[in-house]
Design a protein around this nucleic acid. Structure first.
Lengths: 336, 336
DNA sequence: TTGTACGCGTTATCAT
DNA sequence: ATGATAACGCGTACAA
């Protein structure tokens, strides 16, 4: 069934059918009803491809993330998809992994799909060297690009983020001010926000004019789901003689590992060891004791990002950067 | 830039450009190179909408799930998307929630998008009353439909699932045979696989000819992320005088709640209380002690499902049902 | 090996 | 208020 068939059945021209379909006011009510009846009777829906060809849009938006099964990214994708759908847009999901080439590849696949916009979820999309972000700048000449938790100064790129620097700094300051000066900073990503968080940690030491032992900054190389690996890693540090009375982690999963490390070594939480995670995910509640964690208001970020996106697509002027602040949610792994 | 522009620049007809683009062998190498050079120079890519209109496909497949941020569903979506992409298909993601109307709505949105197939992720898509599954049967007349972890006998519907009945039955039998006869069955979904699991639990009691106290079958009404709620719920049961020496849960999150319940009541795991979860997710490793859990080989299921899907799209004859079996992964919450 | 011409199903412009 | 017709950009059957 196409628009010709409908028009024939209804005894009108395809133009009229199209008008009915698109809610034009220039249709006599009687005609509208006649056409609608036929449409309903046959369950006709316009061909999306033809419509796309004519209008140069299928109202779909690409979502790229490294790994949609990651606790945090999955939530982001979920919120974004929901908001887009509410605004009449479909979501084309593409998981790019963490390697540069596959990220670039995923983006170009979406551009060739002719999506109306691309949303890149996660700070890992912005790398340290400008050269490696070139592909985004280029893509932005074709399609507006929206970054979640990443920062890039470039026309047609819009960033929505949490001030991870400040949130981490505040968490570290709280620990320092409570008298803990040997805070282990544990991280597993050198992405944009990864670096922001690390800087926040460092700056807290600077602000309090406390020297920061470089050994206290530790990068975990293992997988993003290997909680046991984190525990082993920390046990190793301890055996090497490193002492620390707090763990500030760039991700809840690392903090969960820290809790397990304390458990196995009979270290009391929070009295002998404080632990702070990041993202305030389900893992913080699953752990025992429950983990204090920085909440970066992901749902708000996503909702804002989509608003910006829809605004841009509607030709409105939108701010290229929106920054929210994070907030420490106190649970049982801290005495703050 | 369209195919006409390219053909003009290259001094050939659009047919030749099209042939070069689609790798036809009937092109003189010199001509091919000439055309390719122009294509590369201008970075031309064919318009996906026009191509879609002509071929009646944009090589995209709809993925519906209730909530892509759910630990288990997120993994499924991730695996499926990856496998589809490897086969040259895009994924249009739609989160439908758990209500009937929104599920139906999501499906029809995808059908109208003219996706090549729809993959429905999660057993919650099949309800008890046939009437409520009618919308799937209808949709299947338009597009092949692939169900993950759900069962529906219907032309053009293909099911890939884990034998949840058997896996749960085996877990329950192991507990019974270890001498624990008061196993609390804790579940939070009445979906197809939810009912399968429950039946498996019951059948274990039947097989051993042990009477099963109906009070031991408990439905948790709370949210899917409310581990604390589960703990409260179990504390309530205990206060009401219900005794049980094992918890068999339909989902890891419920098992995690059980572990916390034991902790707060000073119940020793596994000696006084055994706990078995389902899905073998990150939560089992985050909990302390780590939770024994049924692994239903999600990655294998997803890979198989996509193979079936691609087969169907290629016109091959594919089995309407593929059933794998689950496997109990023993960790620290059981003495099995 | 290459080119011409048509069809895919819309939306939108311009008459009427 | 309605109808005829031209895009939209591609793939491909058929002709050369």
């Amino acid at each position: 069934m196409n628009i010709y068939d409908i028009s024939k059945q209804a005894g009108v021209s395809i133009a009229t059918v199209s008008r009915v379909l698109n809610g034009s006011h220039n249709v006599k009510p009687a005609t509208r009803k006649k056409v609608m009846d036929i449409i309903d009777q046959y369950g006709y829906t316009p061909n999306a491809f033809a419509r796309g060809l004519g209008l140069d849009t299928m109202n779909s938006i690409g979502i790229i993330c490294a790994d949609s099964s990651d606790l945090y990214l999955a939530k982001a994708v979920y919120y974004i998809e929901g908001n887009l759908r509410k605004n009449g847009y479909n979501s084309v999901l593409m998981c790019s992994g963490y390697e540069h080439d596959s990220k670039e590849n995923a983006l170009s696949l979406l551009i060739n799909q002719r999506v109306d916009a691309v949303i890149m979820v996660g700070s890992n999309y912005i790398e340290a060297e400008d050269e490696n972000n070139r592909y985004i700048v280029n893509a932005a000449t074709q399609t507006p690009i929206f970054l979640l938790n990443a920062n890039l100064d470039c026309p047609n790129v819009f960033c929505t983020m949490c001030d991870d620097f400040r949130a981490t700094q505040e968490a570290a300051l709280l620990l320092l001010d409570s008298g803990i000066t040997d805070i282990l900073y544990l991280y597993n990503s050198r992405s944009y926000s990864g670096m922001q968080k690390l800087s926040g940690y460092r700056s807290a030491y600077d602000m309090r004019e406390i020297p920061c032992n470089r050994e206290l900054i530790q990068f975990f190389e293992g997988s993003r789901e290997d909680i046991d690996g984190v525990r082993h890693f920390l046990c190793g540090l301890r055996e090497q003689g490193l002492t620390f009375h707090a763990v500030l982690a760039s991700e809840d999963m690392l903090a969960a590992g820290a809790v397990k490390y304390a458990k196995i070594n009979n270290i009391a939480i929070p009295d002998e060891l404080s632990v702070i995670g990041y993202n305030n995910s389900l893992l913080t509640v699953c752990s025992d004791p429950e983990i204090s964690s920085v909440d970066n208001h992901l749902e708000t970020l996503c909702s804002r990002l989509v608003k910006t996106c829809i605004g841009v697509l509607n030709g409105e002027e939108m701010p290229p950067k929106v920054i929210y602040s994070g907030e420490l949610v106190r649970k049982a792994t801290t005495n703050l």
